[in-house]
C-alpha cells in the first residue's frame, strides 16, 4: 500500500479542516480515493441486483409508506420480499402489488383466491387497517389482481429502519445534504 502522505510531520489541523487530508495526498492516493468511492457505489449496486436475482422480486426490500396495515406495519418499517414463481399465492399472505396508474406499490393482505386448473390465478386484497377491500384502489372496473401485478410477498420485517427513506422522501434537501456529506467524507478522508 502506498502511504506517501504518512511521511510528513503532523500539522496541527482543526477538526473541521476537511480539505486537510486532501492537501496531503499525492496523485496516486487521489486516484485510490476515487476508485474506493466507485467500489462502494458499485458494491451497493451489486448487492441490490444480486438480491433481485436471489429473491425473484424486482424490489426485494420495500419501505412501508402508509398506515393501512397497522398495527402490524407502520410507516417507515422495512419489509423483505421474495417472489418465487413456483410459490403459490394463498389467502392470508401479505403481497406487494402494483396497480396500473399508480406509481407506488401497495402492501396489503390477500383475502380471496381463485385458481384455475392451469394455474391462472386471481385474487383480492385488503389492508388490515382498512374497512373495505381494495377494489376501490384498483384500476376502474378491475375486480381482481393477477400474478403479473405482484412485486413480492412479505417474508421478513424490520421496524423503523426505513424511516431514513421516509425522511429523505419528505425532505429532499436532507437527502442531498446527506449524499453530499457522505460523498465528501469518503472522497476527502484519507484511508489510513
Amino acid at each position: 500500500m502506498v502511504r506517501a502522505g504518512a511521511v510528513g510531520t503532523h500539522l496541527p489541523t482543526s477538526s473541521l479542516d476537511i480539505f486537510g487530508d486532501l492537501r496531503k495526498m499525492n496523485k496516486r492516493q487521489l486516484y485510490y480515493q476515487v476508485l474506493n468511492f466507485a467500489m462502494i457505489v458499485s458494491s451497493a449496486l451489486m448487492i441490490w441486483k444480486g438480491l433481485i436475482v436471489l429473491t425473484g422480486s424486482e424490489s426485494p426490500i420495500v419501505v412501508v409508506l402508509s398506515g393501512s396495515m397497522e398495527p402490524a406495519f407502520h410507516r417507515g418499517d422495512l419489509l423483505f420480499l421474495t417472489n418465487f414463481r413456483e410459490d403459490p399465492i394463498r389467502a392470508g399472505e401479505i403481497v406487494v402489488f402494483k396497480v396500473e396508474g399508480r406509481d407506488i406499490p401497495i402492501v396489503h393482505r390477500v383475502i380471496k383466491v381463485h385458481e384455475k386448473d392451469n394455474g391462472d390465478i386471481k385474487f383480492l386484497t385488503k389492508g388490515d387497517n382498512n374497512e373495505v377491500d381494495d377494489r376501490g384502489l384498483y384500476k376502474e372496473g378491475q375486480n381482481w389482481l393477477e400474478k403479473k401485478d405482484v412485486v413480492g410477498r412479505a417474508r421478513g420485517f424490520l421496524p423503523y429502519v426505513g424511516m431514513v427513506t421516509i425522511i429523505m422522501n419528505d425532505y429532499p434537501k436532507f437527502k442531498y445534504a446527506l449524499v453530499a456529506v457522505m460523498g465528501a467524507y469518503v472522497l476527502l478522508k484519507r484511508e489510513s
Binding site: A72, A91, G92, I111, H114, E115, K116, D128
Partner: peptide, 27 residues
Amino acid sequence: KQLFLYLSAEYSTKSNAVNQVVLWDKI
C-alpha cells in the same frame, strides 16, 4: 408483536381448482 388470525374457507369447484375465501379475521 401481534398475531393476525383469519378463518378461511378452502374448496375446489368445477371451474377453479383452488378457492380460498377469508371469512373472518382478528388482530
